[in-house]
């Protein structure tokens, strides 16, 4: 588990712990308590297979948490109003907009960002490079996460289905024609292993 940002104080002996789970285990074993209540705003979520436990403020968006706090910079902030797709992450299998999601409501969820997709060597990466599917590259992580979530559900898509799935992602450089080509090729490579 990644080191948490918060310190947790034992209400019985004032020892501090970096992770809430450790405080809980300590209270149960050393003080023979049932448990200690989790502080408000403490959430646990899995991002790219790493578990994070972090104290969040109610007004933090998921984008702020991932990008500014966890330092994963792929979910891009662009419109900040749910209208461009640049901040897309995969949350429990769904491609969602991290700018319109409250971090505090993501307790217990599993999230995947473009960093995680890159680490897993997904064929989308090679096909996106091969088909020149980016120019400035700012919108690309949003397209990659949307495409990955789509291929997870639909491994053998038609070009039309790909266009529909990517229709919420805007690209000001105008790379649109390249995306269906890249996604079709990635789908083929995925199926052929």
């Amino acid at each position: 588990m990644k080191e948490a940002m918060s310190k947790f104080l034992c209400p019985y002996c004032s020892t501090t712990f970096g992770v809430f789970e450790e405080l809980k285990a300590h209270a149960i074993s050393d003080h023979k308590t049932e448990s200690v209540p989790a502080p408000e705003g403490l959430i646990r979520l899995t991002v790219n297979r790493e578990v994070h436990e972090i104290q969040v403020e109610p007004q933090w968006t998921l984008n702020y948490l991932i990008h500014d706090r966890l330092g994963l910079t792929s979910p891009k902030m662009f419109c900040d109003r749910g209208a461009c797709g640049s901040c897309t992450v995969i949350l429990d299998g769904r491609p969602i907009l991290s700018c319109m999601t409250l971090a505090i409501e993501c307790d217990g969820t599993t999230i995947e960002t473009a960093e995680g997709i890159a680490k897993s060597n997904h064929p989308l990466l090679d096909s996106y490079v091969k088909h020149h599917t980016m120019q400035c590259g700012y919108c690309t992580p949003g397209f990659i996460t949307t495409s990955k979530a789509f291929l997870d559900r639909n491994p053998n898509p038609t070009e039309e289905e790909i266009r529909e799935a990517l229709s919420g992602n805007l690209c000001r450089c105008g790379t649109y024609p390249q995306h269906p080509k890249a996604v079709l090729e990635a789908a083929k490579n995925l199926r052929e292993g």
Binding site: L97, T146, L166
Partner: peptide, 9 residues
């Protein structure tokens, strides 16, 4: 309605 992402939310 809206876009694929917004329909997921």
């Amino acid at each position: 309605t809206a876009s694929p992402h917004l329909r997921e939310m």
